[in-house]
Amino acid sequence: MSNTALLERPAAARHLRAVPTAPTAEALAPAPVDAAPSPRHLPPGTAPRGFALYVGIDEAKAAASGVSLGVLVDALRRTLAELAPDAETYATVALAPVGAGGRDVDVVRLALHEPSAIARTKQDEPEDEDRLHGGVVVDISRKRVLIDGESAAFTFKEFELLQYLVLREGRTIERTELVGSLWQGVTEDESPGERTIDVHVRRLRAKLGRYEDIVRTVRGVGYRFDRHADVSIRYGHGTPSPDRF
């Protein structure tokens, strides 16, 4: 699924609109201003902040309807801008293995690691399958690293760093890109310098032990992940993707 195809926009994009229906007495009644979901449906200490709409459709099915994925996203955003101008939106592409079976929307939910969808499938996954093998297993879906069958004690930031390099296998990543991507939302004072990145990489390599050279230094530029024959990557039900609309 290429970024170019997803970002194409036709001259006149369709705009989704609500289909008018005959109003009922309930619909005509004014809703209370402070209406909110019943507390019994919310975990304690939480409050609704938005929603996720999972859309199951591939490019071929969209084209058969005379649209594209990019056009659908644009139409939804236009409609939302009319209904709730202050709403912020974010859209990402769901990448799934070719030939993944099941309903389109279920494939999308798994690809985007929607918690309840993942929970329903975990019972079918062999927990100790990867422990039977040597080498390094980088398990993206479960956020863990196994080294010669044993779970490595990676910190959250160390795993994020390794994952960022793994998902961009073979490409040299500059230190400035690592800082900007892995420390988003922090203030300038909290943002680490390039020397801090070097410290994180040294600790990461130390925990990789004899497999430390899978994270290579490109002198004067940054770092690169090089996969060896004894390194396996587990993506789970979908491949995490940085692609955005």
Rank of each mutant, 00 (worst) to 15 (best):
F159C: 11
F159D: 02
L165C: 09
R171N: 09
G149A: 15
T155G: 06
L161D: 05
D148K: 11
T176I: 07
F159Y: 12
A153E: 02
E169P: 04
L146A: 01
E160K: 14
R171E: 13
F159L: 11
R175M: 02
V145T: 07
L165F: 05
T176R: 14
D148P: 11
G170A: 07
G170V: 02
I147A: 12
K157Q: 14
S151L: 13
V166Q: 10
R168V: 04
V145S: 02
E177N: 09
V145N: 03
Q163L: 09
R168H: 10
A152E: 00
G170L: 05
A152V: 02
F154S: 00
E174R: 06
E160Q: 15
K157G: 03
E158N: 10
L167S: 07
R168A: 07
G170N: 06
G149T: 13
G170P: 04
Q163K: 15
L167H: 08
G149Q: 02
R171H: 10
R168E: 04
T176W: 05
I147N: 05
E174C: 03
S151H: 09
E174H: 03
R175S: 09
Y164H: 15
V145H: 03
I173L: 14
V166N: 13
R171K: 12
F154R: 00
I173W: 06
F156E: 10
R171A: 12
T155Q: 00
E158L: 09
K157R: 14
R168T: 07
R144M: 08
V166P: 07
V166Y: 10
L178M: 15
D148A: 15
Y164K: 10
F156H: 05
R168C: 06
A152W: 03
L178D: 09
Q163F: 09
V145Q: 00
F154V: 03
G149P: 14
Q163C: 06
S151E: 14
T176F: 02
E169H: 03
R168Q: 12
K157C: 04
R144W: 00
Y164Q: 09
F156W: 00
E174A: 02
Q163Y: 06
D148V: 06
S151V: 15
E150Q: 11
T155N: 02
V145P: 04
G149R: 14
R144F: 04
K157T: 09
L162M: 03
E160R: 13
S151A: 14
R175N: 07
R175F: 01
Y164C: 00
Y164E: 08
L167N: 13
R144K: 10
G149H: 13
L162E: 04
L162C: 03
L161V: 02
L146T: 03
E169T: 12
L146P: 00
E158F: 05
T155L: 03
E160T: 10
E169F: 04
V166H: 11
E160F: 07
Y164W: 12
L161R: 09
L165A: 11
Q163E: 15
I147D: 01
L165I: 05
E169W: 02
V145G: 00
G149E: 04
E177M: 09
V166S: 13
A152G: 05
F159R: 08
E177P: 02
S151R: 13
R144H: 01
E169K: 03
R168M: 05
L165Q: 08
G149W: 08
F154Y: 05
A152H: 09
E150S: 12
